[in-house]
Design a protein around this nucleic acid. Sequence first.
DNA 1: CTGTTAGCGCCTTCAG
DNA 2: CTGAAGGCGCTAACAG
Lengths: 359, 359
Amino acid sequence: MEGSESDPGERRPTMADVARRAGVSRATVSFVVNDTPGQSIGMQTRRRVLDAVEALSYRPNRAAQGLRTHRSATIGFVTHETPERSFADPAITGAHDVADEFGSRLVLVTTGRSPVRLRAALDDLIDRQVDAIIVATSGTRAITLPDAVRSRPTVLVNCFEGEAGRPSVPTLPTRLTTLLPDEQAGGHAAARVALDAGHRNFAFLAGKADSWATVERVAGYRTALTAAGVDPRRQLLAHGRYEIDAGHDLARALIATRPLPTVILCGNDRMAVGVLLALGQAGIQVPDEVSVIGYDDQFALAASVRPALTTVRLPYVEMGRAAATHLLCPDRHLAPTAPQWLPCPVVVRDSLGPPRAVP
Amino acid sequence: MEGSESDPGERRPTMADVARRAGVSRATVSFVVNDTPGQSIGMQTRRRVLDAVEALSYRPNRAAQGLRTHRSATIGFVTHETPERSFADPAITGAHDVADEFGSRLVLVTTGRSPVRLRAALDDLIDRQVDAIIVATSGTRAITLPDAVRSRPTVLVNCFEGEAGRPSVPTLPTRLTTLLPDEQAGGHAAARVALDAGHRNFAFLAGKADSWATVERVAGYRTALTAAGVDPRRQLLAHGRYEIDAGHDLARALIATRPLPTVILCGNDRMAVGVLLALGQAGIQVPDEVSVIGYDDQFALAASVRPALTTVRLPYVEMGRAAATHLLCPDRHLAPTAPQWLPCPVVVRDSLGPPRAVP
DNA sequence: CTGTTAGCGCCTTCAG
DNA sequence: CTGAAGGCGCTAACAG
């Protein structure tokens, strides 16, 4: 053993240092530092330990803790997405904030949608002893998970297992939870708010026809129209990429073949911005001549655009929070097998008005 | 019961297991698994070890490695930003990709711009033995770092130490590197490309007057104008938030007080979108009647808007990459003391045309 | 109620 | 070229 305090401040103080200074054993230090339940420590001993901790500014070494406890106060957050859209920002924010409250940290990985990289990422995260795993996608999508994931509690955010179509519901209890936005209800709500405003004349400039979200939203939209006595088959439905330019193109095509509908539903807010741009460039006033409804409630976009977009909110932050809460709250460890559907509430802003008086 | 079979059979194989199966010592396993330099292992022994690794699907435990080596193959990425803008997405993407190549992972934290939380975050990251730290902000800004950060190699992305104004240049060598976009050159370039197109009649709808980026960009813009014989004081300069609605408001005010300039420079792309919207709604064609120039080259916005924005690219992805490269590349560890300025190249698209013929 | 004693899984001198 | 031994810093079982 080397002469105790001869090191010139370089070495980080260890639990042994604290124990020595407080005149107790290392175990005792551990007990008071961690408030170990079932161990009552005398007031004076506790004081001495705490003072020593303070004096040395001792902080426990997480790697050593991890080695011992097999846990790491860490959640692996995997974004299974293309490089361009690499991270699911709002979901990360939600998960981060909850994790932070629990003293856990997020370790981030992106996979570029490659199954090989997904597998590698999960293996690596498990090597790092993450306590739990969140797998998220930007667009709702079916994914296939490597088996590695079964070794940790896992939440799927915005994606689901199962080849296509609807998520598969495992029959056996599992440590896998699925969190999905209720897009069908969202599509329904968007149509509903337009119907309520008096619209009977729709165009739906939807996203890519093969995207799960699109299919769901259109289904909900159709149901709402039908229920209101409006035949969805007589309304205009077109598809495009979920981007501004696609919305712009679609809107221009729509404008070219007047008469216009009284309301345009858009696949998402970016498409709606394209629509707004095209409408403006064609001299058509929103919402006086035609109303526009978006989808997503995208940050720094939907509320900020002029006129501000009436839209349907995708609860990404909430999904991130829910995922982390589920993983970190001890009383929630009874994993439900069926997917949990999160609501997509309508947000009413200026781009929706009553239909213009028919001439 | 620690160690007993509460875990149903699925104990992870350890190095000892591999050693036993291969009939060698643990050290030998370590040597071949890590290709330890200066240790030559016989071909047949190596084969036996590798086979055992394969057979048991052995993977080293990172926590144990970390305890032993005091490293963690991990970079702490701190976004010192408000909750809404919690993550610096493109910079994270850049840093992630480089880290991934080096087998390192990013641990993410946001601080909500609170110095207290920044301090806590850094302390925690150090407890977790991160090998290095990246501190990033969304808007370029001066920050004050807690001393804790001196214990690791650190890169500041988009922020700098020093009370205000220009970043302070430490006189002593330091482990702190600063990466900043050359906003002044960016502002210059934006003005320059407009001047080259023939414009002499400007409006600059800039961001908040107290933001560092704004000050820099305006300075560069002024220099370019002056150099071209255009008096910047006779051009219109207005300030607003870096959001779509602010651009919209500013543009409406501009339109109300004709005559219009021939080109409108915007504080960023979001403001430019607001300008585009306002112009469209006023029946003014871009770029035929007036040209618009953005800033940022924001993903899914600048290139996608119609007309597509001529803009100045903020090299956030590159800055993230540069930060991680600097931290991970052994041959780059000679930290420069002065900030490194990254170029902001002009991206020419449709929203810039020649000035309209003066009547 | 406190202290002693083993390891957690790995890396790294140091002998052989 | 290979194996034995010690310890990184901490926690959990078991005495005292």
